[in-house]
Design a protein around this nucleic acid. Structure first.
Lengths: 344, 344
DNA sequence: TTGAAAGCGCTAACAG
DNA sequence: CTGTTAGCGCTTTCAA
């Protein structure tokens, strides 16, 4: 950002006015072809590039959007980011990506910092901590200034803005039903971010499926906790004391851990115990065995969220026109479940 | 970015001049405590926030750095990003993260776009395609404008700037030696991004270790290709036609795939075949069995790179003072290799 | 202690 | 067709 040439310098060098240069560079009809050519040539020669900052200041638009990601090591978010990024680039927007590390404070700080004219709008996923604390004032403040926000994946009804989410209850319902149809009777569920409402929904879907098919839920087969600590012990413990022939893991990592535990116990997957995971990421794909998993179309989610935001920024949708879009999921069969011959 | 209040409005509302407000807000000694109090109070009340754009335009500094990531689904890069982000935040910098998807064109576009005053400097990792094409003009151009760049992980000697890299030869040497010391005689190596010079270095380290310990490298045990297509077949093929008791995977995914293949063939890991992976990510940690792996300290790499860049931006280091920092690796033992009793 | 004015790089209305 | 001027939001001399 040092030796960069400005419009002013070009004007001086060529003995024309600043506005002539500006217009010539913008290929305005007002300028003669001759002058235009001269100016454009000089600009190219000296690698002129307009200063984005000055432009943004002028237009009151930055053409950049702020992205909030709770945890970039999570496959789902990384994929979603790609989707957002793709759409943004296509439509000429840059993105500023910020990682909140599931921290409320970081989230607040970041949003404060960016909403100073740096970005035109947000695509955000609420952090676990924020969801637990139920403090959403930072969202309200920004929305009040008419800066649009699109929430993806994790949302909360108290934040009144556009949302793009997974149908968690239904997906969990279908995954559980799949296990039952493939012959599982004693299906356990593992959830490791109990604070998340979306995981509660998944448990709800699981319970709904059991009930629907006349199975009484067994408290001992439900492992809910807030982290991965001791998960191995708890699974071993459950396996020691209960009959289990199916496991539904509500996130990728616990699916992988369950697989490790079963392999270690020399339990045959899927012959003795089937596993279904949630979020069809690298761990599911490259596990031993590869896991049957609920694919959540993270990339699509990102695309839809970014599209919605940009449409709003460009006035195609009114600020107050709020919508929640639901992204369907699809079960991807791999080797951790028994083959089903009847589709349903 | 709508109803935001400006310094001008405050000035009018309070019947003082713009510069008085500016000074008061910056707590200047020139302004009486009384006026200051009045202005600051009003500002707080109306949630005044300075417009970052205007500030940057004024200061010719944006306090943001551009990050280039080839592939965010790669654990190493995701971790590195966290490291960069951490340091940047600590030092009051924002980051703009851009994903190049290993594409030359995307890389060029992105760097062009950002070097218009949007960012003060870059922390970048060169894409595979760029490395193959050996076209580095976009880097040269930016460096010529005295915009600092710090390259991390993948670098090239033709780009004259700061670098933070892994000692690939040595790490591969040590990993291979570890396999030999644990009793492996016929050690295969798998590399799936042949275009990458860093992978060539890893193969070099592997060969060096074999030679050093008197083992003649066997061409049939070296799988090099540019992607993951047919990798399963090739590994199976290799296993069918050769004696193999150790596998060194030069990246995470091929480590996971090798594990899948061995498990499928009911080969006992590590009793019959040992595996060592490179980059100690989720796949190594949560695999079945968990993989012994070369930990590359991606987080540290990111921290070091960001620190270097910011030091340069803040004039602590001269622009022309160029350095390559090498981040050491460490072998993390897990269950895919036999225990060693003699440390070396 | 306060304010007027110039300027960061650029655009746009208006005059010439 | 070209130039003058004002202004985006802010800081910073320099005067008052």
């Amino acid at each position: 950002m040092n030796k960069r040439i400005t419009i002013k310098q070009i004007a001086k060098a060529l003995g024309v006015s600043i506005s002539t240069v500006s217009k010539a560079l913008n290929d305005s009809y007002e300028i003669s072809d001759e002058t235009k050519a001269k100016i454009q040539e000089y600009a190219k020669l000296h690698k002129y590039k307009p200063n984005t900052l000055a432009l943004s200041l002028q237009n009151k638009k930055t053409k950049t959007i702020g992205i909030l990601i709770p945890n970039i090591l999570n496959y789902y978010f990384a994929r979603a980011l790609r989707g957002i990024e793709k759409v943004a680039t296509e439509k000429g927007y840059s993105i500023i990506t910020c990682i909140t590390n599931e921290s409320y404070e970081k989230e607040v700080e970041t949003m404060e910092m960016l909403s100073n004219g740096t970005i035109d709008g947000f695509v955000a996923c609420v952090s676990v901590e924020t969801l637990k604390l139920k403090k959403f004032d930072h969202f309200h403040d920004i929305l009040e200034e008419e800066t649009p926000i699109v929430l993806y994946d994790r949302a909360h009804k108290d934040i009144k803005c556009d949302k793009v989410v997974t149908d968690n209850i239904k997906s969990a319902y279908k995954a559980t039903r799949f296990l039952m149809k493939s012959g599982c009777k004693d299906i356990a569920i593992i959830s490791t971010s109990e604070g998340l409402n979306i995981n509660k929904f998944r448990i709800k879907g699981y319970l709904k499926a059991l009930t629907k098919y006349g199975v009484t839920p067994n408290e001992n087969l439900i492992i809910k906790q807030d982290n991965e600590i001791n998960l191995i012990e708890r699974i071993n413990n459950m396996l020691d004391n209960n009959k289990v022939d199916g496991i539904f893991s509500v996130d990728e990592v616990s699916g992988a851990i369950a697989t490790q535990v079963l392999n270690k116990r020399n339990v045959k997957i899927p012959e003795e115990v089937s596993i279904i995971g949630f979020t069809n990421g690298l761990l599911s794909r490259y596990g031993s065995p590869p896991l049957t998993s609920v694919n959540r179309f993270a990339h699509t989610t990102g695309e839809v969220a970014a599209t919605r935001l940009i449409d709003k920024l460009e006035g195609k949708i009114k600020f107050d026109d709020i919508k929640t879009e639901i992204i369907k999921t699809k079960l991807v069969e791999r080797e951790s479940t028994k083959k089903l011959f009847i589709k349903f």
